[in-house]
């Protein structure tokens, strides 16, 4: 996924462009990431190709899931002191509101970091952080 040099560059500069560019799937959905101090906010700009149901219109539920999944993996990589690649084990997603045809945001929280397994919580929202469109929980195995 991401080479040690790209990870190092991203950790040093807070510029995510190289890292996001190195993940074709992240490019496909148009994922962006911004760093505010130690916090990361992931962003999914409005994009026609990400829609599912055309009558609302609404984001494809799978895109919301994919967005949260890549966000969790990047967040976890950035939170490691050494280079460890996360490999996803399982993913549990609750859809709370329809994701409309507008920009979406996600933030992650490391619930537990064990020796080999990490548990990450993800919250996604659009209009207001207080009205999440989805919450998710993922387990990752960390590989050296």
């Amino acid at each position: 996924m991401t080479s040690p040099s790209i990870l190092h560059y991203t950790q040093e500069t807070g510029d995510f462009s190289r890292m996001l560019d190195s993940i074709p799937y992240a490019r496909t959905i148009g994922l962006q990431c911004d760093q505010f101090g130690d916090d990361l906010i992931f962003r999914l700009p409005r994009k026609k190709e990400n829609l599912g149901n055309p009558i609302l219109p609404a984001l494809h539920g799978g895109v919301i899931g994919g967005f949260m999944e890549v966000s969790a993996a990047i967040y976890l990589m950035m939170s490691q002191e050494s280079l460890r690649m996360p490999r996803i084990v399982d993913f549990s997603l609750d859809y709370l509101r329809a994701g409309l045809d507008r920009e979406s945001y996600a933030e992650c929280h490391l619930t537990r970091q064990g020796n080999r397994v990490a548990n990450v919580m993800v919250t996604a929202w659009q209009k207001s952080r207080q009205q999440p469109i989805a919450t998710a929980r993922a387990h990752f195995i960390m590989e050296d």
């Binding site: 074709p24 799937y25 494809h60 899931g65 994919g66 993913f91």
Partner: peptide, 22 residues
């Protein structure tokens, strides 16, 4: 476009999630 890792060329989990959600 659904690759997660260009070196191994493995499909990203997000695309599998989209397939299964669909």
């Amino acid at each position: 476009k659904i690759i997660g890792n260009p070196e191994s060329r493995v499909i990203h989990g997000g695309a599998i999630t989209t397939l299964m959600d669909t």
